[in-house]
Design a protein around this nucleic acid. Structure first.
Length: 435
RNA sequence: UCCUCAGUAGCUCAAUGGUAGAGCAUUCGGCUGUUAACCGAAGGGUUGUAGGUUCGAGUCCUACCUGAGGAGCCA
């Protein structure tokens, strides 16, 4: 029985005859020698077929293979300097499972393609090397997120996708017409539920998809994205900032540790990632506005940062920066006010460097029931819908806080991508539902 | 929703208002070490759609469709 190996482990099988099951990535050939390059998801393997060294029929089969045909190749692995990856396989036999017909060839060629074409063929685009690198970094980021929280006393408690009301009144919701009594919406944050589970478990996090029906059409937006949200009982704004900082440093460290190859393929300047170390520079909203104004921004105190404002704030920084204490008026109803200056909310945004913008938003939540009721009224929110949320302030209310981190924005930053759409297998955006 | 830009061969792109072209892909031929292989040949088009201006429109004008980037909003 000939062992079946994956290309990534070819180095351990030099000199052995093995089988690789994969797809034809590319084929170069001359009259009497052919170099089919095989991919199997774990890597690329250049194979060699020499006409004089094999039956005529086999050479013809190899010579006429088409891109992305599925095949199982048997052959001997050999160290070879000239081959990409350093190993090469001498073809002994080939089993073609499905041959892509010439009449309808694989659409994504090794040459350049435009965004629209690639997005329309996203189901095939995922087979390319660059996409593998991005998706593997995403995998590493998610694994690091889970490992961080799991090893710091957090319990994973996932929150519902169907929700009866808005978590925050402002953003647009996707309505679901199914439930008899009430309109239901797709979640835009698990936070309110997180506050309930944090009062049950102390430290919790949820991790799942989030839906925002914003008419945002920029390189930083998806309508469906994944967010991790930790929430901690007995936590203050300072605790939230410390965890956010630790988490990011941990994630970046893990990617640098385990995904060097992928970062290299993406031509990411890893020195910029090496610089992501604690402590992150802290800045108050007040100071941020002053700094922005001194650099020519139009921003006024009381306004929110625009995309270019975020870039200006981070352009001189090597690390992520943490901006806190925003005007209450521009923040959601649940933020705890600064006891010294009640017009400020104890919220924090973490901005990634190199213009990648906000990757984390969070803060300390209101724990006083009177204040919460007042805010619900000020924001004209339906009090009945928040009965259970108000209950949390009746039965053992404590200071608490947490944040949300957008996985795709984080991955886009770590990979150095121009657009967030490559960080998820099948992006959902304004005007993009297929494939 | 608004602003800007774009739409020509399967793909990436050319074409002063005057015969619609190249590279890649595909097919055929050549090549025993190729590295997005190379060399030769062939096939491949209602120029996004509908109107308009003009002797003549891929090119100019109007509307619409599709896509891209940005604004507001957000992670």
């Amino acid at each position: 029985m000939i062992p079946r190996i994956s290309i990534s482990e070819a180095g351990c099988h030099a000199g052995e005859t093995v089988q690789i099951a994969g797809w034809l990535y590319n084929l170069r050939r001359s009259g009497k020698i052919a170099f089919p390059i095989l991919r199997d998801g774990s890597g690329l393997m250049q194979c060699v077929a020499v006409k004089s060294g094999m039956p005529e029929e086999l050479f013809e089969t190899v010579k006429n293979l088409t891109q992305e045909s599925s095949l199982i190749v048997t052959g001997k692995v050999r160290a070879e300097q000239r081959a990409p990856g350093g190993y090469e396989m001498d073809v002994e036999s080939v089993e073609v499972l499905q041959r892509v017909p010439e009449s309808d060839p694989y659409p994504i060629t090794p040459k350049e393609h435009g965004t629209e074409f690639l997005m329309d063929h996203r189901h095939l685009w995922l087979r390319s090397q660059r996409q593998h690198a991005v998706i593997r970094v995403r995998h590493e980021v998610i694994k690091a997120v889970r490992d961080y929280f799991d090893s710091h006393g957090f319990t994973l408690v996932d929150t519902p996708i169907f929700t009866p009301a808005a978590c925050e009144g402002t953003t647009t919701l996707f309505e679901v017409d199914y439930f008899d009594d009430n309109k239901a919406y797709l979640t835009q944050s698990g936070q309110l539920y997180n506050e309930a589970t944090a009062m049950a478990f102390g430290k919790v996090y949820c991790f799942g998809p989030t839906f925002r029906a914003e008419k945002s059409k920029t390189r930083r937006h998806l309508t469906e994205f994944w967010m991790v949200e930790p929430e901690m009982a007995y936590a203050t704004l300072e605790d939230v900032k410390r965890v956010a900082e630790e988490l990011i440093v941990f994630i970046v460290g893990r990617v640098l540790e385990n995904r060097r190859e992928e970062l290299k393929r993406l031509e990411r300047d890893t020195a910029k990632l090496e610089a992501i170390q604690a402590p992150f520079p802290r800045m108050s909203y007040d100071d941020a506005v002053k700094l922005l104004q001194s650099k020519g921004s139009e921003i006024q105190w009381g306004g929110d940062f625009g995309g270019t404002d975020e870039t200006i704030l981070t352009e001189d920084q090597q690390r992520c920066i943490m901006v806190d204490r925003f005007p209450t008026a521009i923040k959601a109803f649940y933020f705890e006010p600064d006891p010294d200056r009640p017009e400020l909310a104890l919220g924090v945004d973490v901005l990634a460097p190199e213009g990648y913008g906000e990757i984390i938003g969070g803060g300390q939540r209101i724990h006083n029931i009177e204040l919460l009721l007042q805010r619900i009224e000020e924001h004209k929110l339906p009090k009945e819908a928040f009965d259970w949320y108000i209950d949390l302030r009746k039965y053992g209310s404590v200071p608490h806080g947490g944040f949300g981190m957008g996985i795709e924005r984080c991955v886009a930053w770590i990979c150095g991508l121009e657009h967030i759409r490559e960080t998820i297998a099948f992006p959902r955006m304004l005007y993009r539902l297929r494939p």
